[in-house]
Design a protein around this nucleic acid. Structure first.
Length: 549
RNA sequence: CGGGGAGUGGCGCAGUCUGGUAGCGCACCCGGCUGGGGGCCGGGCGGUCGCAGGUUCAAAUCCUGUCUCCCCGACCA
């Protein structure tokens, strides 16, 4: 492609409201443009990067036996009502001209299960892996960070159909292996973490995370351990010393901070009350250490029930001075060992020291930096979720009637898994992870073009002609090449080339005509490589190309 | 949904407090010079000041309403 003809609107300055690096650079390099909140167009060069990611994904899913198809974005509401997902807030809902309710699919479990339910009758029809690349609509409460969290995006979603749990486990493992290859091929720093199964139920899930500062998830990491902090478990750091006992006068001290400093007791020796009401209506007081926070997802999972914070009148005791009481069921977090603890005395102005025996504990707190896993301290870092794999079990096959007959003629439910990956997020995460002051530094497998040839000298000059010849030869050799043939100064061309971030840059100028060589520079690190001959360049360029990291 | 911020030419901004001919840099167009790190000179094009209503002789500026976008939080099959 000739840069003089490419629709690549670069900007010297980033959008004023951009925060995330990928947002700034993707816009500045002319790869994406915003249409509305969470709505983005991919411009030609950006779309090439997106497509290269998609092609890698396609190859790997095909490689585990996936069959590509296409399902519609617009779905009749009825099937979403049957699956029980119609009431999700993120679901875009609309009526057609006849007034019939429709939705924009968030994902395609409903539709794919519909087809499988209609067509699969026998155990002989299983297993199957079906997938497509299709637009997803999600009415996000808060789109953000450019292309990292949008209301419409393309997802590769695949679905596995097996006859039982073991079959599902095998399909799940195939996807895990394919996803690992995808992340590697895309050049991402990544890890798979245990994740919450969410409101979807299901029996297991992993997320594929790409660490980056603009990430929305916090991931807890230790050698051999990686988990979303939504579900992470770790050994707490030891609680501090407590020498007080009995009743303690603490007027006005209603926060952990205030009690801690008023009494001179470390926060880790205080207990914090979290009064809740379960879905069943029963009241429960949850206690965690003063230096810890309740993790509502872990709490919900541990209680096996949804809950909401209790209202003041439901608590019935003075806020700020809550302690355990016989009237309300009590749950202690696992970090609360046996021993003495400072708790609220259930009357204003007083706390007290109580002795807790060993007993039942539930792990319901959010881990913090420095907690340990197998003796090693964890660190917590932000990451963006670029893919997920999920054991759905019979969550959809049951309501949508996906059943088969086994060898004994007995009807069985199909066991399903669902597996998503977002090429746009992979591309954006790559930018987050691979950039410098000058711009993007694409991993070579997903760059918009493999090589950018910068032609110096005026259009029509000998230099330009030599650059043209090089351009033709490299394309003939199978490389994707961008030729900067604009009538612009050298500085502008180099600057734009570094902003766009193609992995290899070749410069053809007056020096080249004298030496018979084009200079070669690797974008990553902006490191000079051995120059390549102007005539018969293809082999030398391919060699440089292969040697790039 | 709560809190904060912003809408002025393609991008980045000033002007708004204190009403009086809409401005700057970059980009763009034309001519010339230059041609290995966003170069120089000269001449140009381009704006319903988010939208609606109101106050006023006069509104980008004051008042009311409204829409949109961004950031933090809540939320996140």
């Amino acid at each position: 492609m000739r840069l003089s003809r490419l629709f690549l609107p670069t900007e010297r300055q980033p959008p004023a409201d951009a925060e995330a690096v990928s947002h700034k650079l993707l816009v500045r390099a002319g790869l994406v443009r915003q249409v509305g909140a969470g709505l983005w167009s991919w411009l030609p060069a950006g779309w090439r990067a997106h497509q290269r990611v998609a092609q890698i994904v396609r190859e790997e899913i095909d490689g585990i036996g996936g069959q590509e198809m296409l399902m519609p974005v617009l779905n009749p509401a009825e099937i979403w009502k049957r699956s029980g997902r119609y009431d999700i807030d993120e679901l875009f809902k609309l009526d057609d001209r006849k007034g019939a309710p429709h939705v924009l699919a968030l994902t395609h479990e409903e539709i794919v299960t519909l087809h499988v339910a209609a067509a699969v009758k026998s155990y002989r029809d299983l297993p199957k892996i079906l997938y497509h690349f299709q637009t997803k609509g999600r009415d996000e409460a808060r789109p953000r960070a450019g292309v990292l969290r949008t209301r419409e995006f393309i997802m590769k979603d695949s679905y596995s159909f097996d006859r039982d749990e073991e079959g599902l486990a095998a399909s799940y493992d195939l996807h895990a292996e394919a996803y690992a290859r995808i992340m590697e091929r895309c050049g991402l720093e990544w890890y798979a973490v245990e994740s919450d199964v969410g409101m979807m139920g299901g029996i297991g899930a992993h997320e594929y995370m790409a660490p980056c500062p603009s990430g929305e998830n916090d991931v807890a990491l230790a050698p051999g351990y990686a988990a979303n902090t939504e579900v992470a478990t770790a050994e707490p750091q030891p609680a501090g010393e407590l020498t007080l006992s009995g009743e303690l006068h603490t007027p006005g001290a209603m926060t952990i901070e205030a009690v801690s400093s008023a009494l001179g007791v470390p926060k880790s020796r205080l207990l914090k009350a979290f009064p809740i009401v379960l879905d069943s209506g029963s009241r429960v007081d949850v206690f965690v250490r003063g230096d810890h926070r309740v993790n509502e997802i872990k709490l919900q999972n541990a209680l096996k029930s949804g809950f909401r914070p209790a209202r003041e009148e439901e608590i019935g005791r003075p806020p700020g001075f809550l302690g355990p009481t016989n009237q309300v069921k009590t749950v202690y977090d696992a970090a609360i060992g046996e021993g003495s603890w400072v708790v609220g005395a259930n009357r204003p102005g007083y706390h007290e020291v109580i002795e807790l025996p060993a007993g039942e504990r539930l792990d319901v707190r959010t881990v913090v930096e420095g907690d340990t896993v197998n003796g090693a301290p964890i660190r917590i870092e932000p990451a963006i979720e670029v893919g997920n794999i999920f054991k759905l079990a019979t969550r959809f096959s049951e309501p949508l009637g996906a059943r088969y007959l086994d060898e004994n003629g007995k009807e069985q439910l199909v066991w399903m898994g669902s597996y998503g990956i977002g090429p746009a997020r992979i591309a954006a995460a790559a930018v987050e992870q691979s950039h410098d002051e000058q711009g993007i530094s694409w991993p070579k497998a997903i760059a918009p073009y493999d090589v950018e040839v910068v032609a110096l000298g005026k259009p029509g000059s000998d230099e330009a002609a030599a650059a043209e010849a090089l351009y033709d030869e490299l394309r003939a050799a199978g490389l994707s090449v961008l030729l900067d043939d604009r009538a612009a100064g050298a500085g502008e061309k180099f600057t734009d080339a570094e902003l766009l971030g193609c992995p290899l840059r070749l410069t053809v100028g007056r020096r080249s005509l004298e030496s018979g060589e084009a200079e070669a520079v690797a974008r990553r690190g902006r490191t000079d490589l051995d120059p390549v001959p102007l005539t018969g360049a293809a082999e030398a360029v391919l060699e440089r190309w292969r040697a790039l990291p």
